[in-house]
């Protein structure tokens, strides 16, 4: 059920954000955005208003343009047409350094230089606030310590990142993004290559950052159930367009999942969080005829 963007989403937001709504929240908006690599059109005519102060998850099949969209939000990709605006200013018109103080981006699977300690890495996050004569101010120090504490990495600060476990490594990178101190945080598949426990660990951390530090988070996620649990707002994409967006309970229905992923499924209620839970049906597994699940969609 394709929803006209922006319109319905605006009304939902007012109901859900009483806990974090404050004037400081950044407005990240996308207007008739076209993105392409060379001649290959990836995203076409996309409009979007990222709900401030919330966690937004972008979901969709491989190559649907979700990571490309995130790169455009981070100004890593210049639009062919249309604009991405932060608080009403086109990203391309914002000085590089200023943008880096307001919008942080963690790409997928970043590579740490060999032997670099957690502290060194997190310290890099302060770059947009540093100059060649002011490289380790009191504010830098406090921000780095706070980031280490928020991610539970204080104990490991002196350890080389490449000697840590996958989950700890990802936490170290998130700590770097946290130290950057930006109101907006963009995360490209922050759970890739992590085992389940570490995935949950990282996503809990994202919730902490949103609730405790009021950061607006936009992340690309593969796992629909995790997206439902951890996001306030879900954007479902297919072939470079937004198919549906809104609260998880509205967006993640059997019809939308089938349209977006081409996968038949049932949607049940997550017994832990009460959010939608997608139960896929393959060719070999179809629901038992009776008793039919109470939450089956129809």
């Amino acid at each position: 059920m394709p929803t006209p963007p922006a319109a319905t989403e605006r009304t939902q937001r007012t109901e859900r954000t009483e806990r974090t709504e404050s004037p400081a929240h950044p407005e990240l908006t996308v207007r008739s955005l076209h993105l392409a690599y060379d001649d290959r059109q990836i995203v076409s005519d996309l409009d979007l208003a990222v709900p401030p102060g919330q966690v937004t998850a972008i979901v969709g099949a491989n190559a649907c343009g979700k990571s490309t969209l995130l790169r455009a939000l981070a100004r890593l990709l210049t639009p062919r047409r249309g604009t991405v605006e932060l608080d009403g200013r086109v990203l391309q018109s914002i000085p590089t350094r200023e943008l880096a103080q307001r919008l942080g981006m963690l790409p997928q699977g970043p590579v740490t230089p060999e032997g670099m300690t957690v502290l060194d890495l997190v310290n890099r996050g302060r770059s947009p606030h540093q100059t060649w004569w002011r490289q380790w101010s009191r504010a830098d120090e406090l921000a780095v310590h706070a980031a280490l504490a928020a991610t539970g990495m204080t104990e490991l600060a002196d350890r080389p990142v490449d000697e840590l476990s996958g989950g700890q490594r990802q936490r170290a990178w998130i700590a770097m993004a946290v130290a950057q101190g930006t109101p907006v945080l963009l995360l490209d598949e922050p759970t890739t290559y992590l085992d389940l426990a570490h995935q949950i660990d990282v996503l809990d951390l994202v919730t902490d950052l949103n609730r405790n530090e009021h950061r607006t988070v936009v992340m690309v996620l593969h796992d629909l159930n995790q997206a439902c649990r951890y996001a306030d707002h879900i954007i479902a994409m297919k072939s470079g367009r937004i198919v549906a967006q809104g609260e998880p309970a509205e967006v993640i229905t059997a019809e939308t999942v089938e349209e977006v992923f081409g996968l038949r499924c049932q949607v049940a209620q997550d017994p832990v969080s009460g959010t939608p839970m997608v139960i896929p049906m393959g060719r070999h597994h179809t629901p038992a005829p009776a008793p039919a699940p109470a939450t089956a969609t129809g």
Binding site: A74, L76, R97, M105, P107, P110, S127, P128, Q180
Partner: peptide, 14 residues
């Protein structure tokens, strides 16, 4: 030192 973290991270760090 930021370029050492990769082009995308470096760009994100201003």
């Amino acid at each position: 030192r930021t370029l050492q973290l990769g082009d995308d991270v470096a760009a994100g760090l201003g």
